[in-house]
Design a protein around this nucleic acid. Structure first.
Lengths: 188, 188
DNA sequence: AGGGGTTGTTTAATTTATTAAACATGGTAG
DNA sequence: CTACCATGTTTAATAAATTAAACAACCCCT
């Protein structure tokens, strides 16, 4: 079990664009501490390490499970170039449109432009997958159910939840609802 | 970030049918150390904790990944509850507003409602961080520069790129530009 | 009842991490 | 060029973790 704590901390700190001093201040420790840890000249107590990671912020679990991500290609997309995800979602009721930014080859992030006609519904069988997702409503209203919680969201409102919890979207209004959502890792 | 190291260690040790002394011997530390750690009367250095876990055996990642479900979080957000990220971005020119869905403690996904006044600009020094990001324009126009590529995007248009490539957002139009973006892992 | 074995806990001495402040370097503006 | 930041590094003083050994409690056996 070799895990280079110093290198890992340095990597994460730099990924977040923080200097040793900046991180130290946010974490409530001194810059010297960060320096010594990154050189593996001292091994932080987990309470110290926890303080440091709270300045990132990042959990201890995330810190010790290192993983990396790959790079994509097309950068700009005209409105018409968004990919319509047709029929990918089974069990939907009414007219639902999911338009995706880019294909999702080797991507951790899925961004969708979603439209729900009045009465449209992702279906009685609740959605469930291993992701985090969130979004912001642009137009109309949507009723979102997450687990045992339910809420009506309007323009400017937003949501965020763990996708492992069963969820469902329903347009119970009488105008089309439009929203933009993001999901990591991708669902479809 | 509540993580009870003592309780966790005790749980694991007992699950493996080891006494404090037995574990201590296999780990190469003293029984007193184990006792103090389990009572949270001392916070082990990660090097100590690693030694202890080698006696189980178990990795640090496994130790900190408590496989119980996440605690109840805020799911729904009224428009006014989005968190304004003020002054977090240095070097911006003109009026820029970043409103975030939820705090981002222990989250991999950051969703922002961004507004750029006419002339607003993320600045000469290009942005750069270890993420993937993308978004969709709702209103107005934005000029996006990514590496050596530049494009003017309007309502319905979108973008997606590797955030390690230097990038910059500029509203070169004469009306406010509004867009919704997502980023994983979070930037700020 | 009394040993001998285990268990987890505590305490003073020691080792180690952490602090606060200085040091050294590099870039940038005047 | 000098002055001035900001960066990461080092060092003596302090705070904290770790050790080694003793302590108390419990169980089992004769």
């Amino acid at each position: 079990m070799e895990f280079d704590v110093g290198a890992r901390l340095k990597q994460i700190r730099e990924q977040h664009g923080l200097s040793q001093r900046a991180l130290a201040q946010r974490a409530g420790v001194t810059n010297g501490t960060i320096s010594l840890i990154e050189q593996n000249r001292s091994s932080p107590s987990v309470s110290s390490l926890r303080k440091v990671l709270q300045g990132i912020p990042m959990t201890l679990a995330e810190f010790f499970s290192s993983d990396d991500l790959p790079p994509p290609e097309q950068i700009f997309f005209k409105g018409g170039e968004l990919i319509e995800l047709a029929g990918e979602l089974k069990g939907t009721v009414g007219q639902v449109s999911f338009r995706q930014v880019g294909d999702l080859r080797s991507r951790n992030l899925q961004i969708l432009h979603e439209r729900y006609a009045p009465g449209a519904d992702t279906g009685r069988t609740m959605l469930q997958h291993e992701s985090e997702e969130g979004g912001i409503v642009i137009k109309g209203q949507i009723e979102l159910t997450v687990g045992d919680r339910k809420q009506l969201l309007g323009p400017g409102d937003a949501y965020f939840f763990d996708s492992r919890v069963p969820h469902r979207f329903r347009n119970i209004g009488d105008v089309e609802c439009e929203l933009i959502s993001a999901c990591t890792p991708p669902y479809l």
